[in-house]
Design a protein around this nucleic acid. Structure first.
Lengths: 137, 137
DNA sequence: GTTGACCTTCCCATGGTGGGAACCCATCTT
DNA sequence: AAGATGGGTTCCCACCATGGGAAGGTCAAC
């Protein structure tokens, strides 16, 4: 059983030491072993969990989602339907957020396209912010 | 000069009273007139600014951006190039964020597509979180 | 024995928004 | 006159995820 310090755990999992401590404080990971100096020492299974968490975060899952996903991962009697349901709901949220951002971008692009962008003060972008555009409340 | 209370200002501009006070506290809007009761009373120009801010927020601009946009709006000698530059930079940020979300969604969609979603525990989504997928570090 | 590189805990900040307490004020009804 | 209702006011706390930094303990090497 290889034990590593928090800095090494951070280096191998890509999770900052700050965040590792935070995950512990909110109960997302188990408190690790401590040496007699009270230094945290992580075992391989801890490193696995941290990697799991980092990859989940990379996919945009919230801590609450990750909590459930980790539980499911540990539960050998899980049903894949439960995992899939979490993923599908998350995909929906991601798509909604992306669509919202894309909508803003589209609106701004069309405004910017008709803005001269020179020394003159006239600007359809400011006009749009000035009074609401019909169709874009 | 019509003066309205904070609740009326909120109703006509779509900005919550809470946020109106917040905007004032961070210096985004000028402190409004006060009656002898210390009630805030807003003039038409204040309402304009609040509407301007709300529409800017709807387009995803940060407070710092809005501060500059409001300054440019007030400055009759502005150049539209300055406004356009802020908008273009913001469009870039929006597009980057949207692309990041879309990327997460795409990855999850392909994983979910190959997940049975039944009572069996096997699940490519959990496998992906378990150990990094090649090409998706 | 000192330097420097770790570790520990604790508090504070971000950005944008909301909740709620505790209190003041105005008006309408009993 | 008293009280209910529905404003207003300030102030603090919460979210989510992350980072900064202070103040101090511990260990290695030189």
């Amino acid at each position: 059983m290889t034990l590593v310090t928090i800095a090494q755990a951070s280096a191998t999992t890509g999770v900052s030491a700050k965040m590792i401590r935070h995950y512990e404080s909110i109960g997302l990971i188990k408190p690790p072993l401590r040496t007699e100096n009270r230094y945290r020492h992580y075992a391989e299974s801890d490193l696995h969990d941290l990697g799991f968490i980092r990859r989940s975060r990379d996919l945009g899952f919230s801590f609450e989602d990750i909590r459930q996903l980790l539980d499911l991962w540990r539960n050998k009697a899980r049903s894949s339907a439960e995992v899939k349901a979490i993923a599908l709901r998350h995909i929906k949220e991601l798509d909604e957020k992306a669509a919202a951002l894309a909508g803003m971008s589209r609106t701004l692009q069309s405004l910017a396209a008709s803005c001269h962008g020179d020394k003159r003060p006239d600007c359809p972008i400011l006009e749009a912010l000035d009074h609401s555009i019909r169709g874009n409340p």
